[in-house]
Nucleic acid binder design. Sequence first.
DNA 1: AGTTCCGCCTGCATGC
DNA 2: TGCATGCAGGCGGAAC
Length: 336
Amino acid sequence: MPELPEVEVVRAGLEPAVTGARVLHVEVLDERALTRHDGPAEDFAHRLTGRTIAAAVRRGKFMWFPLLDDAQPGPAADAQPRAAADAHPEALVAHLGMSGQILLGRDRPAARHRRIVLDVQPPGTDRDGAAEAPVQLEFVDQRTFGSMAIDRMLPTLDGAPAGLAGAVDTLDPDAAWRRRIPFQVSHIARDPLDPAFDDDRFLAAARKRSSGIKRVLLDQGVVSGIGNIYADESLWAAKLHHDRPADRLPRATLRGLLDEVRAVLRRALEDGGTSFDAQYVNVNGQSGYFSQRLAVYGQQGQPCPRCGTPIVREPWMNRSSHRCPVCQPRPRARLR
DNA sequence: AGTTCCGCCTGCATGC
DNA sequence: TGCATGCAGGCGGAAC
């Protein structure tokens, strides 16, 4: 479930189930789901089993689950002082790649491409005071471009919260994990919905790039969370051709584009993300509805919602770009 | 350092 | 019908 809105739908769906939950059991069915983990499956399982998840956090298309230090596995764990463990903070990191899903539940029929299964114990009790039933998290991924990993956490460079943590933000804004980011996410820029996103910094970075503006939108080191769908949708909304050189776009144009990016991402989020098939679903296996509002992505041959001209789909960087040939004319040769 | 290309995978639609 | 080809919402690393 690739781009920001789809990943946020998953993060928000996981949040109530995993916050404060303890990992009871880890099962790795396919080691290819651990390509970002520095070690074998046994190491992944060992470092995760028994740990308590503090929250569900997201930056761009990356999610992570900070692990508390209270329950390190192993015989010496009980004697380990909290401060010592806290010197090596860790998180479970998840990236969905092109086709990853995280499904929540119990008694769910086994999905075809199950890669990792986590059993977690939520912290609460039911009305009778009994412990809540354990919950199963299934990491399902057809193409195995997604992955999970245990990674160390570093302080954020700007000192701001590392990403969006949902309701926990208001409950525990000063927790140490808020201002730490997994090492493998540290090179990813903040996303445009992050309150700490620096618009001027984005404008400055974009204006240093000679490549086309779509390439810049897709560069997760400049701005994160945008993929092929929302890049095309945002460029249509801003009436920009994808090959317009970023360094020749006026600042006001870039500001306008950033506004459109935010509007598109927010609208997609309201609709539960974009789903074309059963591949892109929330933690309960349900589809989002934003595909019904797409102006250009996958709409080749359909009329442009603004001017009625048929939308075209063109090869671009070994992928495709969709645009309105009238609203988004190709830049003149000397501007390319 | 910025930019571009390629490989990593499986499944599906298309065309011959 | 079978088979080859191309394409799919992403990322990181190599090569220029």
